[in-house]
Design a protein around this nucleic acid. Sequence first.
DNA 1: CCAAAAGTGTTAGGAGTACACCCATGG
DNA 2: CCATGGGTGTACTCCTAACACTTTTGG
Lengths: 225, 225
Amino acid sequence: MPAAKPPAVTVDLVVFTIRDRQLHVLLVQRGIPPFEGQWVLPGGFIREEETLEQAAQRELDEETGVRDVYLEQLFTFGDPGRDPRGRVVTVAYYALIASDQTPLVARTDARAAQWSPVANHPPLAFDHEHILSYAVERLRNKLEYTTVGFQLLPRRFTLGELQAVYEAILGRPLDKRNFRRKLALLGILEPVKEHRRERGRPAQLFEFSARKFTKLKDVGIIFPF
Amino acid sequence: MPAAKPPAVTVDLVVFTIRDRQLHVLLVQRGIPPFEGQWVLPGGFIREEETLEQAAQRELDEETGVRDVYLEQLFTFGDPGRDPRGRVVTVAYYALIASDQTPLVARTDARAAQWSPVANHPPLAFDHEHILSYAVERLRNKLEYTTVGFQLLPRRFTLGELQAVYEAILGRPLDKRNFRRKLALLGILEPVKEHRRERGRPAQLFEFSARKFTKLKDVGIIFPF
DNA sequence: CCAAAAGTGTTAGGAGTACACCCATGG
DNA sequence: CCATGGGTGTACTCCTAACACTTTTGG
């Protein structure tokens, strides 16, 4: 039934995290031609028995050892010529990793992997530059009307850290008082009986309240800053 | 390089239009097994030399004879088992057709094609029910922060018709005065020297002003009703 | 003259934005 | 004591939402 020469189907991942208050992306170095030695987004072929999302989960697990993270389909790229080896259609996903879970897993193959600041990353092979910038754009939009930002922080965080996440991704400073009022208004943060002390006045720690959040979920959250 | 048994890759289309103030979708009746005689979304295999979007354009042209319409990638569906014949990954697109351009093209194959009201359509085979509802949801969201609504109307239209489009898709009544004020504020409609007369007071006809619109494009349009 | 749709303003409430100072701690 | 980040309130503007009557035409 398939037409002649079906294309290969891969899944590519744009894995984001926050490191020292900057948005980082996971890159791997190719060990084989084409583009040997150049940096690319992690990815691989889909297997027969798995869904696209499971393929993305599996790749993510293989690269980082992290599970249960925010994962969302981004876009499907399939231009002929995007891969010199032949027709490859890639379904791109992006993932958000909490900043306390970013250790990379011991790698089984020869390729190196590293977190790179999005604002200053090595050139990428294939059309991965394009995929990355599309993912950043999506993340930026998503940030404005959902609560994905929390996915990038550990379970407990300060309001300063949260604001830094938003500022890093949106690329502009936010007003501290307005930011805090907005969050208070949303009522999805739960203060915990603990403070973080480092440089300056100790900061109240908060947790994201899944309970309160799910109530809002149906209503639809608008989250502009 | 490809893994064993690469999946087939198809493009499926959710083609929307407005007919007598209701949202309609284009469906075709399968002429061959599986699901012979059942209704599905139009679609087909991608060709070697074309991009995904070109494949979608081509399918759309074949089905409706319409070109230069709003077309946007929706989502890629690839669960194993979504097609009984084997692994098929489908990249779904949705398209918006102006209501004065909805005649279907003379069909070259045996299948029937028809416009069905989304609110009352025949059951769909494969996972096309799922694809359709996802498309409706996307359209609804898109309507709230962009100007896609105009794509569903002929070049000249009345404010009543435009409001009816929004109401049909959003599924709720809108306040006439607020709706009109909002549009006046956006300033992207150009009144033309013509009125439409039918049942009741004649209505001013408007055109979408591409010139005024592109100015806004960079600024970013928010379009809530 | 009646049915049908077009057209038109005001008000009250909520959200966004701009803005500056004091507080608690570690070094 | 000083550097560092934490924490707080008010005023203005703008957008949204609610709401009802008159106008113009065809039949």
